[in-house]
């Protein structure tokens, strides 16, 4: 076994060409979610940048969204062809870690620009964002969930059973209100215009004027501003704080390309990747690139409190929060 030796020798450095000389044109297979690899996502730029330094072939495989990605990896188990899984988030990492499929990462010396301290030893963050309700500039938004519940503002949300932001909202209300969450949901029920399968449907309906606000991200207005030159969208700051989503990647322990996978994880934290994420994934980079954030990001709201459950607590909390949610909205 020469891989572990090379891995040890190379872990802190970028001596990839040497590695490649030993092993001819390795292929690194990265499972990720669909929108990451589409030509409008970060995938193409990341592939080009990594292939320029690794002398390897980076092969992205797009699989649904984050939750579908985890389901796929679980289905494949030990036999998986993935070397790296990119696109899980902090709501999925506990379950992902429990599969025993992932190796510990070696990206230890990075100064993360995250609102929370990063301590996970299996998954490496690459971008993050806050969930928020997005509205038209002309609309006067409520200042928190209680305000929203007592107002007649209409909202579009996603089903937590089929959507990542939907699950985020569930945890947001739970983290902000704990015991009082059922009461909040009961009062929110008449503000909810409808619940959609995924983010795309809800956001599409919002743009068509079906509701005052839609559950999305604080960074959504940046897309309209930067890509479309349209500054008519805003995210509503909520006084309770905003729940976070941190997107992560992990290396598959059984991969024959583990050293290469580990260096890819390290590569994710560098400028060539971090600088494309804000305007392709429309999220905050996990490490602010040298040139800073793209122009336009300074207009976004900056929540004063970041809410996030420790990954290990999520599975239990989400099961109970789903029951609350179903109970409140099924009436």
């Amino acid at each position: 076994m020469r891989f572990p030796l090379i891995a040890l020798a190379c872990a802190p450095c970028f001596a990839l060409p040497a590695l490649a000389a030993e092993e001819e044109a390795q292929t690194l297979t990265v499972y990720t979610y669909d929108s990451f690899v589409s030509e409008w996502g970060p995938g193409p730029a990341v592939e080009e940048a990594f292939e320029a330094v690794c002398a390897c072939d980076l092969n992205f495989v797009g699989v649904g969204d984050g939750a579908a990605l985890l389901a796929r990896v679980r289905l494949e188990g030990e036999r998986t062809r993935a070397d790296v899984v990119l696109g899980l988030d902090t709501n999925l990492t506990a379950e992902a870690a429990a599969t025993g499929l992932f190796a510990q990462h070696e990206v230890l010396d990075v100064a993360w620009d995250l609102p929370v301290v990063w301590e996970d030893d299996m998954f490496v963050p690459y971008d993050w964002g806050y969930f928020a309700f997005v509205h038209e500039a002309a609309f006067d938004p409520p200042g928190d969930f209680r305000d929203l519940a007592s107002s007649d503002a209409s909202i579009l949300i996603q089903d937590p059973r089929s959507s990542t932001p939907g699950l985020g909202l569930l945890l947001w209300v739970e983290a902000a209100y704990g015991e009082a969450a059922p009461e909040i949901w009961a009062e929110l029920a008449d503000n909810v215009v409808t619940v959609t399968k995924g983010w795309s449907e809800a956001y599409g309906l919002f743009l068509d004027g079906e509701a005052d606000m839609v559950l999305s991200y604080t960074t959504s207005p940046a897309y309209h501003l930067i890509a479309e030159g349209d500054d008519s969208k805003r995210a509503a700051p909520f006084a309770e704080g905003h729940y976070m989503q941190i997107e992560v990647a992990g290396a598959v322990a059984s991969s024959p390309n583990l050293p290469l996978a580990q260096s890819f994880l390290r590569f994710l934290a560098t400028d060539p990747v971090q600088s494309v994420l804000p305007t392709t994934n429309w999220m905050y980079p996990a490490v602010t690139p040298e040139g800073g954030l793209p122009e336009g990001f300074e207009t976004l709201i900056a929540p004063e409190r970041a809410l996030l459950y420790p990954a290990g607590q999520v599975p239990e909390i989400k099961a109970q929060a789903l029951d609350t949610w179903l109970g409140a909205l099924s009436r």
């Binding site: 939750a67 579908a68 089903d159 059973r161 089929s162 909810v192």
Partner: peptide
């Protein structure tokens, strides 16, 4: 789900989604 206005309108297929994904 979308036109039913929420989880009241949960069909078997959505329950399958919940079982697989959630």
């Amino acid at each position: 789900l979308t036109l039913g206005g929420g989880p009241r309108a949960t069909t078997v297929e959505l329950a399958i989604y919940q079982a697989v994904r959630f």
